[in-house]
């Protein structure tokens, strides 16, 4: 990786060092996993203007595309943006140049995981991992096993405790249980092996 700076949470662009060496092959590598048509972007910012989560992002969606094109992988792969993106597909739907922005966000997350780049909000990656673990276990996802495991292992329970919201959340969970909203037994499927094989094979991407 050519660019080696880390991201300032408030003003990532202002933290770019004055001389940077771009990784000119990054766009090519990303597009090989697509195609996402990133190079067709003409920076109209329509994606960013319609993005419902832009308020929680450190890089705007159009900036992610731009940094992929100019080859600054470390900046995008360390960003919060790729993780807080809600995958709502508004950007992809509206882009006048058919850039698959939301799909590219997924590709960047997957690339960050494969390179061992830590997720700036670990509880978001934990959610994905623990969901897939539950799916591997049963072939379907059982909220009754998946949600408690997630809350415990991601530290979300501790956060709720610290934010004094744990009591309210437990009460809500209790009400849900009383209303019969949690399955008592997980449903498991015959094709569990096939599912495990799909999830277990190593990636080429």
């Amino acid at each position: 990786m050519a660019d080696s700076h880390t991201l300032d949470k408030k003003h990532p662009a202002s933290m770019l060092p004055e001389t940077i060496t771009p990784d000119v092959r990054f766009l090519q590598q990303v597009e090989a996993a697509g195609p996402f048509q990133a190079s067709a972007c003409y920076q109209c910012r329509k994606c960013t203007n319609g993005c419902p989560v832009s308020f929680a992002m450190d890089l705007y969606p159009d900036e992610v595309i731009r940094l992929v094109i100019v080859g600054l992988p470390q900046t995008v792969l360390h960003s919060q943006t790729i993780w807080v993106c809600a995958a709502c597909e508004t950007c992809t739907t509206r882009c006048p140049n058919d850039v698959k922005i939301a799909e590219l966000m997924d590709c960047l997350k997957e690339t960050a995981v494969q390179k061992g780049i830590p997720c700036p909000h670990p509880q978001i990656l934990d959610l994905h991992n623990i969901f897939l673990k539950d799916l591997k276990r049963w072939g379907r996802v059982c909220e009754t096993t998946f949600i408690p495991e997630y809350l415990l292992r991601s530290g979300m329970l501790r956060r709720m405790w610290q934010a004094h919201t744990l009591g309210a959340e437990i009460k809500l969970g209790w009400r849900m249980g009383r209303k019969g909203r949690f399955a008592l037994l997980p449903k498991t499927i015959k094709g569990k092996k096939e599912v495990r094989n799909i999830l277990g094979r190593p990636e080429k991407r």
């Binding site: 996993a33 995958a87 997924d106 590709c107 997350k109 997957e110 995981v113 990656l125 959610l127 994905h128 991992n129 969901f131 897939l132 799916l135 799909i198 999830l199 094979r201 990636e203 991407r205």
Partner: peptide
């Protein structure tokens, strides 16, 4: 969401 986010092929 989990699979499409971090495991496209799966």
């Amino acid at each position: 969401t989990a699979a499409h986010s971090i495991h496209h092929r799966a």
